[in-house]
Write a protein that binds this DNA or RNA. Sequence first.
DNA 1: CAAAACTGTAACTACAACAATTACAGTTCA
DNA 2: TGAACTGTAATTGTTGTAGTTACAGTTTTG
Lengths: 147, 147
Amino acid sequence: MAGLSSRSAVAIHALAMLANRREGSLTSAEIADSLESNPVMVRRVLGRLRDADLVWSTEGRGGGWSLARPPRNITLYDAYVAVEEGRIFSRHTRPPSGACEVGRNIGDLLDAEFQSAERALEERLDRTTVADLLQRILAADKEPADH
Amino acid sequence: MAGLSSRSAVAIHALAMLANRREGSLTSAEIADSLESNPVMVRRVLGRLRDADLVWSTEGRGGGWSLARPPRNITLYDAYVAVEEGRIFSRHTRPPSGACEVGRNIGDLLDAEFQSAERALEERLDRTTVADLLQRILAADKEPADH
DNA sequence: CAAAACTGTAACTACAACAATTACAGTTCA
DNA sequence: TGAACTGTAATTGTTGTAGTTACAGTTTTG
């Protein structure tokens, strides 16, 4: 448990590509190419984004993936919460001893602290939209390579 | 990678117990009892806290663990950074394709977003001291059980 | 209609981090 | 000397993830 999965990175990368594509769609193979990864992994992550109504997919020949909302209305938090599950901090693996003054009461209080910290992280993620990110990506692409 | 280890919870629990003990010391066995865990795991976590100068230990008979600073000067962030390693978010497992406008540039920008979110979490953790937490633990212990 | 190009998933392997435990060497004190 | 500690190596079982192959189902195109 050294951290979260790389699904957030995959999801945000894919959302940025879809936003850059404007009206069209992209296949899982095209997205996997950019990620230097595998179409199946991409479909698994994008399947979660679809469950969260961030993208939609069409099957069959000519099918692929598109944004379900304008990139201005999709935040990094939306992607994060769609693909990562549950909490960042692990709580006590077993309930502490009721015989100890600290053990009896720390559970709920520590949980509140951890939740509060996790919420701070989420609020920061929620302040950046996919449109913001794409704009910066395209700006960086126009700069000289050695800068 | 469903999240961080439970070492933060163990560390903070132990720090609260040591703060509650005021001047004395506690053995890893006593702390493990409260955690319903194992003395070896406790010594491993507290070893990291010692490396970060949050606690110190004495060997031999009558030995044990004590705070190295007043609990007012130890924050949950101090514990977190001492026992958890590295980053919360996993980045791209392989560098994205340089052939893609997005792939060429998303690495650094996404890293900055993730770092910023992680910093928000850390700043929230840094606002609670071990003394704060212990005070609330002791207050909760005085309340009626069904409340 | 048949082939091609997609998505949607199941199944499998490999790997790394973690929790948990046993074992034991070294240290200190009574 | 023996009891009570810390410090740490070694081991085991579990879990989540990354990565891959395989293939069934869907849709468009020639």
